[in-house]
Nucleic acid binder design. Structure first.
Lengths: 196, 196
DNA sequence: CCATATCCGTAACTATGTGTACGGATAAAC
DNA sequence: GTTTATCCGTACACATAGTTACGGATATGG
């Protein structure tokens, strides 16, 4: 299969996997049902991904790379650091809480091995946090009372929304709610780091 | 069976369920394996709890009630509100992140129906948040820039620790780490609500 | 002591998932 | 056109889970 056709099939497979994950949970998102929905075969899934967890780990890496890529695209060279944070805060929040990211978190919570969770965590650590930290390090922060400003920023932005979404206690946020939350997080963040 | 013996058996069942949940995930924590580990029978579990999800919902309610009860016990009448918050912040954080609470979150994330998540969320809303809100309403808060101080407090205290714990990306925090995090949350909280 | 209710251990029924294997079909490279 | 590699659809082996049913054992109340 040519690379572009293979890429299309990979896309169909992961799209099917996300839909089944959202609808039936990790246990109910069987490899056979994913293959059928993607119009691929069982044998192909095992050949490409190794096993069920291998498929979901690939999806987690794709998702983290996609988030970093979109954050990078949203930045431009002529913004100052605070403008850049204002730019990406709602975007980051939106992506961390969208159905795909949440479905992956649910799969990781259901996976007893912990390996899928490790893949998601590595995605955050390797792809997203460095970008945030880099922006925050350009701010003229005066005082943080010994707190880590990157962690503080993420805490204020995301808080417990991911776990609420993952357990189904919170529906998808509207774009307005996302924007509002991001704005409030930045107000609090500025106050706490002495930039208000 | 007498009530106290039944209570003992209920305790054995839920203890077994937590252990299997932590070890094998929600799917692997089968009703048969829980019954065996609790030295009860399959038929008894179905008679008492209805079905698998009924068992875990009962555990979620028990857990929320237990958290509220321990918080109430930690408070005394002669503390002012800030002292009371300082008292319960590390305790609340510790309980929200302990293995039992996290196991329930993982079960809820794995449950495609959303009902287990609804039970956990109701526990938070009905048992824990009112207590926090009541304490915070006694504070002489000057200004919150339109933010909800109860939500802010919980955001600063818990942040994304629950989802990290649920996906296995973070081990159990030590008591020292819990205390430190609670202290930092309260410093930030005071600053943000004009009590610093 | 007897009657009743409940628990226990196991079997049975139904269902589904993971992962491998296989022969035919198709795509791709030479 | 031929050879090789890969995909597809299906079958298969193995395993396990949710839930109900049943007869004997035990606990409880009168």
């Amino acid at each position: 299969m040519r690379d572009d056709k293979k890429q299309d099939k990979h896309e169909a497979i992961t799209t099917a996997a996300y839909a089944l994950l959202a609808d039936k949970g990790y246990a109910g998102a069987s490899m056979l049902s994913i293959a059928k929905a993607a119009k691929a075969s069982n044998e192909t899934l095992y050949r490409w991904y190794g096993d069920k967890r291998g498929l979901f780990e690939a999806m987690a890496r794709d998702n983290a790379q996609g988030i970093r890529h979109r954050l990078e695209q949203a930045l431009s060279d002529d913004q100052d650091a605070m403008q850049a944070l204002e730019q990406i805060a709602p975007l980051l929040l939106s992506m961390l809480l969208d159905d795909r990211a949440i479905s992956l978190n649910r799969a990781a919570a259901a996976d007893p091995s912990g390996e899928l969770g490790a893949a998601i965590s590595a995605g955050g650590r390797d792809e997203i946090v460095p970008l945030i930290r880099s922006l925050i390090s350009r701010l003229a922060i005066k005082d943080t009372d010994g707190l880590n400003p990157t962690d503080l920023f993420v805490t204020l932005l995301v808080g417990d929304l991911q776990i609420k979404r993952a357990i189904g206690a919170l529906p998808q946020l509207s774009q307005e709610q996302v924007t509002q939350r991001a704005r409030e997080a930045l107000i609090s963040f500025r106050k706490l780091v002495g930039l208000a």
